[in-house]
């Protein structure tokens, strides 16, 4: 096992552990903070894959914006609105069974698939991935349409949020 693999396993454990804490902790702010830990773990995995751009975007957008939005949303609620009910119902073993079976099935399928064990091609030296991404985003034979549609989608999200918040009558 190489040094990088050990680090990867460490971060995978952090992601899984934090994700578990998000759903089991009762304190909503703690849940949001554990979510941030999980998202940070994902950013670290991107960084290990040498995908620096995705790693920083993960931190900027998910931790810097979405997690802040979650915390604001939690703060807008009152303490009395906290969930006090039991965390498990009587069918929990069924859900656990289904998830274990699904995980086993996916694991079995993927381990037989050739693409799973293939290592990715080496990135040629001197290639600026961000620049390539930029060229692809606005090139007409690549992703220019999705790029502009993303803008429309963001516009729709903004208008929707403002409309919902301000049309009380």
């Amino acid at each position: 096992m190489t040094f990088l693999q050990i680090i990867f396993l460490l971060f995978a454990a952090v992601i899984l552990g934090s994700a578990l804490m998000v759903v089991t902790t009762r304190n909503m702010i703690h849940a949001a903070l554990w979510l941030i830990a999980a998202l940070f773990g994902v950013a670290a995995v991107y960084a290990l894959l040498n995908a620096g751009f995705l790693a920083v975007v993960q931190v900027v957008v998910y931790i810097g914006a979405i997690a802040i939005l979650f915390i604001f949303a939690v703060m807008l609620t009152r303490r009395e609105m906290r969930d006090k009910g039991p965390q498990l119902n009587k069918n929990w073993w069924m859900a656990a069974l289904i998830s274990v079976v699904t995980f086993g099935g996916l694991f079995g399928l993927l381990s037989n698939w050739a693409g799973f064990s293939k290592t990715a091609a080496e990135i040629p030296a001197g290639l600026d991935a961000v620049e390539q991404l930029g060229i692809a985003l606005v090139s007409p034979d690549a992703y220019v349409l999705p790029f502009e549609v993303a803008s429309i989608l963001l516009l729709a999200a903004l208008i929707g949020a403002v409309y919902v918040a301000f049309n009380k009558e």
């Binding site: 751009f53 957008v61 961000v130 620049e131 803008s151």
Partner: peptide, 13 residues
């Protein structure tokens, strides 16, 4: 914020 993230690769290229 999401918009500016899209703009960075555009600016680099």
């Amino acid at each position: 914020d999401v918009e500016t993230v899209f703009l960075f690769p555009w600016a680099v290229a």
